[in-house]
Amino acid sequence: MRSLTLALAAASLTVPALPAPALAYASGYYNGKVWRDGQGRLRCKRPNGTTGLIVGAAGGALVGRAIDTRGERATGTILGAAAGALLGRHVDRNRRGRCR
């Protein structure tokens, strides 16, 4: 009985979400990563760099800790995390082609 209730709840949540994308595709308003705004201009979705920022900070912290071998190594970890975050964000934002 419990699994039947969960299945019905899951089905009831997915049904209202189905018609919205279908309407957007049918009207020509949205086509993948490119869409038209209210004034008819083409817009595109670009990455904001959050994933690159997080991955770069983690990797930079590990590299900074490995390079700074004297003392507490906190300075190397912090500087490595900051540099890695900036580099990772830059790479993530600019690695995809431009929208035209």
Rank of each mutant, 00 (worst) to 15 (best):
M1C: 08
M1R: 09
R2M: 10
R2L: 12
S3Y: 12
S3D: 11
L4W: 09
L6P: 00
S12Q: 08
T14A: 15
T14G: 13
P16W: 03
P19I: 02
P19Q: 06
A20P: 03
A20L: 15
A22H: 05
A24Q: 00
A26T: 04
Y29E: 14
G32I: 03
R36Y: 12
D37Q: 02
G38N: 06
Q39L: 12
Q39T: 14
G40H: 04
G40Q: 07
R41K: 13
R41I: 08
L42N: 11
L42G: 04
C44A: 03
C44Y: 04
K45S: 14
R46L: 10
T50P: 00
T51E: 10
T51Q: 13
L53A: 09
L53R: 00
L53V: 07
I54R: 01
V55G: 02
A57L: 06
A57G: 09
A57E: 02
A57C: 09
A58H: 03
L62F: 13
R65E: 11
A66L: 12
A66C: 08
I67Q: 05
D68C: 05
T69H: 10
R70M: 09
E72G: 14
A74L: 14
A74C: 09
G76K: 05
G76A: 04
I78V: 15
I78F: 07
L79P: 06
G80L: 05
A83I: 12
A83Y: 03
G84V: 03
L86C: 15
L87D: 03
G88N: 03
R89Y: 12
H90Q: 12
H90S: 15
V91A: 11
N94H: 15
C99M: 05
C99G: 09
R100M: 08
R100W: 08
